[in-house]
Design a protein around this nucleic acid. Sequence first.
DNA 1: ATTGTTCTCGCCCTCTGCTGGCAGTTT
DNA 2: AAAACTGCCAGCAGAGGGCGAGAACAAT
Length: 620
Amino acid sequence: MAATEISVLSEQFTKIKELELMPEKGLKEEEKDEVCGEKDHQSPSEVEAACTSGALQDSVLEEEVELVPATSEESEKHILTLQTVYFTSEAMELQDMSLLSIQQQEGVQVVVQQAGPGLLWLEEGPRQSLQQYVAISIQQELYSLQEMEVMQFHALEENVMVASEDSKLAVSLAESARLIKEGQEKNQLAERTKEQLFFVETMSGDERSDEIVLTISNLNGEEQEDQPTAGQADVEKAESTKNRRKTKGAKQTFHCDVCMFTSSRMSSFHRHMKTHTNEKPHLCHLCLKTFRTVTLLRNHVNTHTGTRPYKCNDCNMAFVTSGELVRHRRYKHTHEKPFKCSMCKYASVEASKLKRHVRSHTGERPFQCCQCSYASRDTYKLKRHMRTHSGEKPYECHICHTRFTQSGTMKIHVLQKHGENVPKHQCPHCATIIARKSDLRVHIRNLHAYSAAELKCRYCSAVFHERYALIQHQKTHKNEKRFKCEHCSYACKQERHMTAHIRTHTGEKPFTCLSCNKRFRQKQLLNVHFRKYHDANFIPTVYRCSKCGKGFSRIHLWFYSFRFCGLAELGGPGSVSLLRLQSGCPAGLHHPKAGHGPEDPLPGQLCHTTAGTGLSPLAA
DNA sequence: ATTGTTCTCGCCCTCTGCTGGCAGTTT
DNA sequence: AAAACTGCCAGCAGAGGGCGAGAACAAT
């Protein structure tokens, strides 16, 4: 089998790879020897030279293909070998050509098998010859490899054509990239392409083996002679600037023309300039992401493997870097906050937090919404705000499936609607209990806050400065006989009653009978008068005594008669006892409104009103 | 040149508080 | 019956904590 893999990774990474990711390493190393007939100690350039010297065989017969990303010592090239292809150049029509799918197994090994509809077409120019096509499809489960493929293929689409001595073997993967990723992803890919460009070369492997070798080379290192990329151009420009600013004998300062960076050290300057290129020679074998430095790669690989060497002594947390551990300890354990605000007591663990905090003093809002006037002080708030435009509600209640725009809102909902023993909030100023703290605050603000303006009682002259006190006071006026007569001890609940009463003192009689000009103090008295004396249809109620048969127009006259007749039987007036009177009061002889209140007499009892009226003349 | 440390940016999260619509109660 | 009142509720924004990860720096 065929693969050339030159590991340049750190010892740590290599170890991880060996132990965890490459259980079949031994096997693969054996296979390496067969790839291009070279040994492990070969440099990548040597490998490449050996591989490029051959031509792609017209037919490849075996069923296994191995795709091994391999890095040179500079980690700039990746050699892919396709060891098995199903078609022969002249024998097959293009449509019939089986596509190859590549599955990644155990990190590096790739098996090719026949697949259904093609996912990737590798082609260059018109489909004239099968020799110009290589078809690869990549399974969905091929996680990051797929990403790399698309990225590289898209790179080729960006007019970076194959650099191969034998043009018939060159492949361009433009069409294929479109087939796999369209729409939004395409834009993302385009951007990424700018960051990482590759040559793809195809060539035959050893004549005795059925191999196709794809060499994917980082364009950023090789292209600049002919067609420098934008990044490279910048670097060159900067380098020239650097040279111009060198002065013999004086302390040199290197200025980056791409950004504001300056450094007195050339090594720092060179390192910085690499940030303006897309040169990321260190490849992660797990996701094929590339990095500028080995340290970055190692940290990145640790995220795959879960390796977190820096463990906190005070809790179970562990981190990839020592800096993360230090920061964690400051946040959680030491609470050291070196960054202090000059305008308030705020202090933070990180400078960026202080910077963000200061915006609350300055009012700076750098993040402008593109759809409204809102601007936020940090990116997260703007992102959250954008949900108000999109209508997105990412948080769903797991019980009632109501959706919410913010997690906190959902949390409150779950607690209040579905929670048990939901905490309530007691108002410190009154007995009110409110479910939400924020609403309690509203309650206190509305009812218990001091009011500079005087709050006057609507029933009396009392004045308050707190709304709650006013309301409580006004309730005391309820059911009270707050209308008191200035001339006697009379008091009543309603103002109209007092008005009528006052007329008993003033003698005023504002209601005049239109038929006889008789005057009355109350309208009700006038109505009774009119019905009795001027209304022909009026039939007066007659109360008849069951003892003597006598009729009475008013109920209390009837009651007097009834009691008199009863007393007469017992021995005449004056011998009456209260007990006898109570028992003698007939049922139904109550006040017309009897039975509507707690003070009303029960059937058989003497009505208070009637008793009061009736007792006094007899007792006297 | 390499490697460990520090700085910085960005993302996501929680807590907090205000707002306005709604519905039930009171006036 | 209508208006006023008030707690309930979801929407929304302010502020800050915590951490992942890349860039820059410094030591070797």
